[in-house]
């Protein structure tokens, strides 16, 4: 069963140890991703989505960041036990990442073909000439004319820069693509184009994908599975249909309520009261309980475990789980 899992993150904890205190960015996070699947990774700013992604790449800036415990099994092997040299062979070749801000993700003093070719030369034994030729092919694939390959990043628009970033990420045909809010910095029409392109290319390269976003609409468009993250933990994990038709965790329900409906005419959107907790001082028990309308006394005491309420639909909420016996989180997998 573990063999069809591309990525299996178990009990991952990442802290930033700063002078003013320990930031609990990711706290006992569990997440699974099957081969060829795309997972939408949704949460507010500061929930720990990017930290999780950087953790998978083993690119957490250290100091102050530190992976405290847990396992990240990628194709069955624990990435946290790999040496730096082994990780360098995985980064780019097997796991590639698309970063949030295309404006700053490209080296301003290097032409784009060289930046793509750099990736190709690192992971394939090809000549400089061949690498540059392949870089040109990649640019055409993401919809940029080959003649522009010798241009510098500042000569491209934001949407085109993101296409270049995508071309770099896909240049070595990675098994897993992590896209960290790839469209947040772009305007809406360009967003649609870039998303369409990513969808197309993901299929063509038959890669698995983790799409980090806070936009539930994008997830609905692209992903098969959804994980909702709150204050360093996954609180709900299900396939897209199940989660969109029947959200179970009070936080997820709150998120959906705060999305405006095109058919309804409301004066004010319902929002989740309160703010994200301070990651240096997370509430005991369920981190969401101070803002939760369904909270009970026990929510402040016990840390909620992931339970499979419906087949393939996991939720970490003691109130929702109610009388049903908790299933151990280790069982969480492809249903």
């Amino acid at each position: 069963m573990t063999n069809d899992l591309m990525l299996d993150i178990r009990d991952l904890t990442i802290h930033y140890e700063t002078d003013s205190g320990v930031v609990h960015a990711v706290e006992g996070l569990n997440l699974q991703l099957g081969r060829g699947e795309s997972l939408g990774f949704v949460g507010e700013t500061g929930a720990g989505k990017t930290t999780t992604a950087l953790g998978v790449m083993r690119l957490i800036p250290n100091p102050p960041g530190k992976i405290k415990s847990g396992e990240i099994l990628f194709e069955g092997e624990d990435l946290l036990r790999k040496s730096e040299a082994e990780m360098r062979k995985i980064r780019g070749a097997k796991i590639a990442m698309i970063f949030q801000d295309p404006m700053t993700s490209l080296n301003p003093v290097m032409t784009v073909d060289k930046q793509i070719a750099e990736m190709i030369k690192l992971h394939r034994s090809v000549s400089e000439h061949e690498a540059l030729k392949q870089a040109g092919d990649m640019l055409e694939l993401v919809g940029i004319r080959r003649e522009r390959m010798h241009d510098y990043p500042h000569q491209f628009s934001g949407g085109m820069k993101q296409r270049v970033v995508i071309a770099i990420a896909l240049a070595c045909d990675p098994a897993l693509l992590i896209a960290d809010e790839p469209t947040t910095a772009l305007d809406v029409t360009i967003q649609a184009q870039v998303l369409e392109l990513m969808k197309k290319l993901k299929e063509r390269f038959s890669a698995s994908m983790i799409l980090i976003t806070h936009d539930l609409g994008i997830v609905a468009d692209i992903c098969d599975k959804v994980a909702i993250m709150y204050a360093g933990r996954v609180v709900e994990y299900a396939d897209k249909r199940s989660l969109y038709t029947n959200p179970l965790h009070p936080y997820t329900i709150g998120l959906f309520k705060s999305v405006p409906d095109i058919d309804e005419d409301v004066d004010e959107l319902p929002v989740i009261p309160g703010l994200m907790p301070d990651p240096m001082d997370l509430p005991a028990g369920c981190a969401f309980h101070p803002r939760c309308s369904m909270a009970e006394e026990r929510c402040a005491k016990e840390r909620p475990q992931m339970c499979e309420l419906e087949p393939g639909h996991f939720v970490a909420c003691p109130v929702r789980v109610g009388g049903r016996g908790p299933s151990p989180s280790g069982m969480l997998g492809k249903a």
């Binding site: 980064r91 993700s105 490209l106 080296n107």
Partner: peptide, 27 residues
């Protein structure tokens, strides 16, 4: 060295001496 494009270079699997000596230094 805190810039995003340095992180991009690292995410390609580039080794640290080239990340610093080529990508970072020229900027």
């Amino acid at each position: 060295v805190r810039a995003d494009y340095i992180r991009t270079a690292r995410s390609k699997g580039q080794n640290e001496s080239i990340v610093i000596g080529v990508h970072a230094l020229r900027n």
